[in-house]
Design a protein around this nucleic acid. Structure first.
Lengths: 213, 213
DNA sequence: AGTTTCAGTGAACACGTGTACACAAAGCTA
DNA sequence: TAGCTTTGTGTACACGTGTTCACTGAAACT
């Protein structure tokens, strides 16, 4: 194994170790460098060969999360169907995806509002990017033909924050009731449906209070 | 000063010290007991006269937050107006309220998704309570007459999570551009308006995919 | 083959941590 | 006034922390 491969490997094991600790319930901000290195099976000083800081490690985790979100986007893209069918299936895909990457999404959930300013911004940018992708996807389907670009953006932001917000529920509930999916899905559908109908109503009826003259 | 008064006073100064540190950007989970007592001007061991734990202190902060939210609810209740006027003014009231209680809302923002399970649940319960109050308020105005009880609940949850989510923006942006209010308000209005229109559309047209037979 | 580069080691440091304990002093009760 | 109660103090301990430094050994290069 080449030296560079070896380095990338321990680097990954450091990131995974941090992610594991987050998944186990610790907050990233309270995880110590030594904990991470211990859990990764290296000596504390090795840490500095890869990151100068726990925050830098966090930012790299945010990058990883970004790549995951792009992968999710691809997985969720589906052939044309009715909005409702697509909604239901997307929720299902999302739940699977979150459960399949528990640690990353626990990381996302907690660092989106807690954590350093830089870290928060990094994650918010990833989510903003995701929202923009979603918007351009919807724009192509012409399911909401006639909606203003601004309204579409707002709707997508709303969807993304709503889903991101509900993610912690997926993580919490999934160790417990077996049929949490049913309950979760139905209330999630209601939320998204409400947003969708709101956007549909806003279609070609200009927004209420943002047109001064 | 009576002994009990004195005790309540240092207890409060401990809670305020913790809150201050949170407001300064630290995460509650990474604040040490000693930091708190130092900042409160007492010796570390005194802490145990009031709380057994930093988590217990956090739970008490969550209670304080709950009281604040009730106060906010009262402040935001307004004589009958058009939904749009009320929306605009409520946003204004909320921004003022958040800026007036920066630390509490920074605490809310970060502990809603990070922090202990117990702490998260405590804050989520406060927000749930708030959403329920909002629902019963709206129910009385009959502005959304004909809406199903479930849809109303969903709408209120959506509003509360959306506002709670945007709170971190208020805190971040308020040290910066002077007219952040303008920008923030307009996008916030758009979001709430979209939700409102969604609920309005759902009025007496039963939900899409939750009626099996 | 000889030399250089560098990921990982291990000991050491100064310091912050949570918590236990005995003690002081001021309020309360009798 | 005497005695009990209890908030806050000071000291002490064992331990975890981030970071430093000189080091080893093997891969990579010449």
């Amino acid at each position: 194994m080449s030296r560079d491969e070896k380095k990338q490997q321990t680097r990954k094991s450091l990131m995974d170790a941090a992610l594991d600790l987050v998944g186990k319930g610790e907050s990233l901000s309270s995880i110590s460098l030594r904990e991470v290195t211990k859990s990764a099976g290296v000596v504390p000083t090795s840490f500095y060969r890869h990151f100068s800081d726990m925050e830098e490690l966090g930012l790299n985790l945010a990058d990883e999360l970004g790549m995951l979100l792009r992968k999710l986007m691809r997985a969720a893209r589906q052939p044309d169907r009715s909005p409702q069918e697509q909604m239901l299936q997307s929720i299902d895909v999302y739940i699977d995806f979150v459960l399949q990457h528990r640690n990353h999404f626990a990381f996302m959930s907690q660092c989106r509002t807690a954590g350093t300013l830089a870290l928060r911004n990094a994650i918010r940018n990833e989510l903003k990017f995701f929202a923009n992708e979603l918007a351009s996807d919807i724009r192509q389907t012409s399911l909401l033909a006639g909606i203003s670009s601004q309204d579409l953006d707002v709707m997508c932001q709303l969807i993304v924050t709503t889903v991101a917000d509900a993610t912690v529920d997926i993580l919490d509930l999934s160790n417990g009731s077996t049929d949490f999916r049913q309950e979760f899905s139905t209330t999630m559908v209601k939320k998204l449906d409400l947003i969708w109908q709101g956007a549909y109503a806003a279609r070609s009826s200009s927004s209420v209070s943002s047109e001064p003259s």
